[in-house]
C-alpha cells in the first residue's frame, strides 16, 4: 500500500548484517576451526577429528563440566528457597516493602567484579570477616576457598547472594497473581499458613519457579569471573568452570582449534539442557 516496498527491509537490514557478521560467520568459523590445529601465529593445520578425540579424553574438561553442574546443583535450590522465602514474607502486606525490595536488589546491579573482590575478603580463612564472625559466636573456621570440598559451594553462595534480589521480585510478581479467594476459602477450612503455602501458592507459581530455574541455569553455565579472580580454578581444580577452562585453552595457550571444539560441545550441552527444561514447562502449563 505504501510506495516504499523496500522500507521494511531497509529497517531490518542492520539486523541482517549483524546476524551474518556476528552470528552466522562466527558459528560457521567456529565449527570449521574445530577440525584444525591453530595457534593464530602460525599456519592452520588440518587435524580431522583430533580435537574431538582429545576432548573426550580430556579429564580436566570433564572435571570442569562436572564442576559447573555441581555449582548449578547448589546454586539453584539455594536460590529458589531463599528467594521464595523472602518473597513470601515481603508479600505479607508489611510496611517498608519497597525499601526492603530495593535493598535486596542492590547486589544484582553491582558489577560482578566488585562483588567478587569483596567476597574474597569475606571468605578469607584467617582474617576474613565471615570466619571472624563464626569464631565470635563460638564456631570453628571454615576453609571457604581453600578446602576442595567447600570452594565451589562458597562460590555458589556468593552467586546466590548476588542474584537472589532479582528472583525475589520475580516471585513477588508471581505471588500477586494468586487469587485472594483461594486463600480465603482455605482459611475457612482452617488451613495453617504453611499448608496454604504448600497447597495453594506453590502449585500456582510453578511457572515462575521454572522460569527462575531456567534463568539461573543459563547464568550458571557462564560462571567465569568469580573463579578467575578468587581461585584461578583451584584448589585442585575444584572451582575450574567449563568457561574458565575454555578461556584458558583459548587465551592462555592459544589452542584455538581445541578451544573451539570445547566451546561447541559446551554450547550444545547448554542448549540441550535448556530445551529439556522448556519441554518440561510446556508440559506443565
Amino acid at each position: 500500500m505504501r510506495k516504499g516496498k523496500l522500507t521494511p527491509y531497509l529497517l531490518v537490514s542492520p539486523y541482517i548484517v549483524h546476524f551474518l557478521v556476528f552470528v552466522v560467520f562466527p558459528v560457521a568459523f567456529s565449527i570449521l576451526l574445530t577440525f584444525f590445529k591453530w595457534d593464530i601465529i602460525s599456519e592452520m593445520k588440518f587435524s580431522g577429528f583430533a580435537n574431538y578425540r582429545r576432548l573426550f579424553a580430556d579429564r580436566l574438561f570433564w572435571k570442569a563440566l562436572v564442576n559447573t553442574l555441581y555449582f548449578l546443583s547448589i546454586h539453584i535450590p539455594l536460590e529458589l528457597v531463599v528467594s521464595l522465602f523472602l518473597a513470601e514474607i515481603l508479600n505479607q502486606k508489611l510496611k517498608f516493602q519497597g525499601l526492603f525490595r530495593a535493598l535486596f536488589f542492590l547486589p544484582v546491579i553491582v558489577s560482578g567484579v566488585a562483588v567478587t573482590i569483596l567476597w574474597q575478603q569475606l571468605y578469607g580463612y584467617n582474617a576474613g570477616l565471615l570466619n571472624k564472625f563464626l569464631m565470635y559466636i563460638g564456631l570453628g573456621k571454615v576453609g571457604w576457598l581453600i578446602d576442595t570440598k567447600m570452594a565451589m559451594p562458597s562460590i555458589a553462595i556468593m552467586a546466590t547472594w548476588k542474584n537472589v534480589g532479582l528472583y525475589i521480585i520475580l516471585f513477588l510478581v508471581g505471588l500477586q497473581t494468586v487469587p485472594k479467594q483461594y486463600y480465603e476459602a482455605a482459611e475457612l477450612e482452617g488451613a495453617s499458613h504453611w499448608q496454604k503455602f504448600f497447597k495453594i501458592t506453590l502449585p500456582l507459581i510453578n511457572p515462575t519457579i521454572i522460569m527462575v530455574v531456567i534463568l539461573s541455569t543459563i547464568g550458571g553455565f557462564s560462571l567465569f569471573i568469580e573463579p578467575y579472580i578468587m581461585t584461578g580454578g583451584g584448589p585442585l581444580n575444584s572451582t575450574l568452570s567449563a568457561l574458565l577452562y575454555i578461556y584458558k585453552q583459548g587465551f592462555f595457550y592459544y589452542h584455538m582449534g581445541y578451544a573451539s571444539a570445547l566451546g561447541i560441545f559446551f554450547a550444545l550441552l547448554i542448549m540441550a539442557v535448556v530445551i529439556i527444561q522448556r519441554k518440561y514447562i510446556e508440559k506443565r502449563t
Binding site: V21, V27, I40, I246, G263, F266, I270
Partner: peptide, 14 residues
C-alpha cells in the same frame, strides 16, 4: 538461545 561461548573465539579472530 545461542550461548555466547560458541561465538567467543571466532569473534575474537574476526
Amino acid at each position: 538461545t545461542i550461548p555466547f561461548q560458541i561465538t567467543l573465539i571466532p569473534q575474537y579472530i574476526l
